[in-house]
Amino acid sequence: MIAEIFDALQYAFIQRALVAGSLIALNCSFLGLFLVLRRFALIGDGLAHVAFGTIGLGLLLHSHPIYVSVPLVMLASLWILMISEKAKIHGDAAIGLVAALGVATGVMLASVGRGFNVDLFSYLFGSILAISRGEVILSVMLSLVVLMVIVLFMNDLFAITYEEEYARVLGIKTRRMTSMLTICTALTVVLGIRVVGTMLISSLLIFPAVTALQVARCFRTAIIIAAASSVLSVVFGVFISYLFNLPTGATIVYVSFLLFGTAYLCGRLF
């Protein structure tokens, strides 16, 4: 088995899957913890749906879908925030609204543009095994940016997440922080879509966070557990899917679920 794992590591596509997958998962785990605690976790799902629409636009314009998606999904994420603040619509409703618009845009563009609907649908599931070198480099760079932002603003984000108004009285620019968090989420979602697809991206955001919340007694541990469980699920997911000839994306989700189950039991027992 060990030998087989070493065999697997010989292949560049496995190496790429591990590197890009772990980094994106790591981002997702940090962002997910804040989002889950702020009851805003579904924004990942919503933005993934928006990305579906923007990828449709990218395909229509014959440019690389990521280049079109990154700015547009960022704008959409800010728009979700704006709607939920200004228009007296709750966060979940705002997400649903923007997500529906995104999907409608995708469907509309697919219909107008004709002939790329299958390509568009390949983004629903993504493929962690079919990442190109350019995508790995892009993922690594953007992941590092997001990680740096999170590490630098960790305490600010923690304060806001626990109590937003109090954070404002501490002089933290809460609105700016929230925008930054959602923009980072938008970036990560667009990257993640290429890797795990629209369908699985919210599992990368939510699973590590809820796993950590089962056992963590303090925030530092929560961050560490979330990060560890996200990277573990990608690494184990890739290897298990290699060893047992299973689809990789789904295996990653199952490993995440297994880790969550273990954490849940630990949380109950101890």
């Binding site: 605690l37 630098l152 603003f153 305490n155 600010d156 923690f158 304060a159 626990y162 109590e163 109090y166 954070a167 009285v169 501490l170 002089g171 933290i172 950590a212 919340l213 963590a216 007694r217 303090c218 925030f219 530092r220 541990t221 929560a222």
Partner: peptide
């Protein structure tokens, strides 16, 4: 408020110090 929030008293009290700090608030 924030049921199940993973933070200790120590961590919460420490946030009170953040107003004295500039970026990055370490």
């Amino acid at each position: 408020r924030k049921r199940g929030f993973p933070a200790t008293v120590g961590e919460i009290v420490a946030t009170g110090l953040l107003s004295r700090k500039r970026f990055p608030r370490r």
